[in-house]
Simulated assay, not measured.
Amino acid sequence: MGNQVEKLTHLSYAEVPTADPNGLDPEEDCARIGVSYIFSNDDDDLEDHHETENAQNQEEKQYDKRNELECAVYYRDECVYEKSTKNVDMGTYSPENLSNKCKPGDLLEFVATGQYPHWAVYVGDFQVVHLHRAEIINNFLTDASQGRRGRVANDLYKFKALNPDVVVQNAMEQVGAKDRELSWRNSECFAAWCKFGRREFKVGGEIRIGKQPYRLKLQLSEKRSHVLEFQSLEDLIMEKRRNDQIGRAAVIQELANHLNCVEEISNEHNGD
């Protein structure tokens, strides 16, 4: 792991557009480049594609918090999302213990190694509403978790939350919606929309123009970070979730490979 980070910090980015979440020039030679692309299509069906529904519901799935990638999301100069052990309680709980810590209107995030995080809205009486397999459904928290550990995720997004009663109402009113009736690409966008009511979480909620106002800052180590740029929050969330699914070590290796490729192209160009 240490060698991978070191590998990132000794590259030249002379011909690569750089980006800083605060609009400032990068200090020293921090590994930051700005790009705008989506690596893969996020589909909540993928979360349990390789498992039978009942086989692992009764046992806890593997989760390693050390492989969770810390990151922050900026809209221009404003931080609108932050996952950091310094600012948010990143602890996770078994589904049974988590159900005792929830209040109606809470956002829940279920995590497991190698899977997309699954988000849900707690609506009371040990039940949640969530987007699962292209349908908004209402079931028990323990069933929605499918054996994954979970946490209350109210503080990850920095938007002003709606009244808890409104959050629950938003979620319950969508129960039964499916397929083309849906306005969200994944469980996180749906749950966050219920909580904050912002159109940015909906499919096509923002007009994509030439500018790229959103930045995803990946914290690779205590002093090293990498920034990606996006035209919409929806696109950024797709990439953030993909990073969560593959894990911190894989993201660092992927960036090392990508940046090595960039350096080779730059060296070839300079040699002409």
Rank of each mutant, 00 (worst) to 15 (best):
H50G: 05
Y75F: 15
K65C: 04
H50C: 05
D64M: 00
S40P: 03
G23L: 07
C79N: 09
Y63S: 01
E78Y: 14
C79D: 02
C30T: 14
E28V: 09
E51N: 06
P26A: 04
G23Q: 02
Q58P: 01
Y63M: 00
K61L: 11
E70W: 03
D48P: 02
R32E: 05
A31M: 09
D29F: 09
E28G: 07
I38P: 01
L69W: 02
A55S: 12
G34E: 03
P17C: 01
Y63G: 01
V73Y: 06
E28L: 13
C30A: 14
G23E: 04
D20H: 11
D20M: 00
N22H: 09
E78M: 13
E78W: 10
A72W: 00
V73R: 01
F39D: 13
I33D: 10
Q56I: 03
D64K: 03
L24K: 11
D43W: 05
I33G: 12
N22W: 12
I33E: 10
L24T: 06
L46H: 00
D43E: 07
D42N: 07
E28F: 12
D64Q: 02
R66D: 12
S36P: 06
K61Y: 01
P17Y: 04
E60H: 03
D25E: 15
N54F: 14
V73T: 10
Q56F: 07
S36I: 00
H49V: 08
S36G: 10
C79P: 04
P17V: 03
P21Y: 01
E70V: 02
D43H: 05
N54G: 13
Q56N: 08
A19R: 07
H50V: 07
R32F: 06
L24D: 11
V80K: 04
E60C: 02
V35D: 13
P26D: 04
D44N: 06
T52S: 11
E59F: 10
D25F: 14
R32H: 07
D44S: 12
R76C: 09
P17D: 03
K65F: 01
R76T: 14
G34F: 07
A55W: 11
E47I: 12
Y63A: 01
E51D: 10
D45M: 10
D25S: 14
G23I: 06
C71Y: 08
N41C: 05
D20S: 10
D64N: 08
R32N: 08
R76S: 08
F39S: 15
G34R: 07
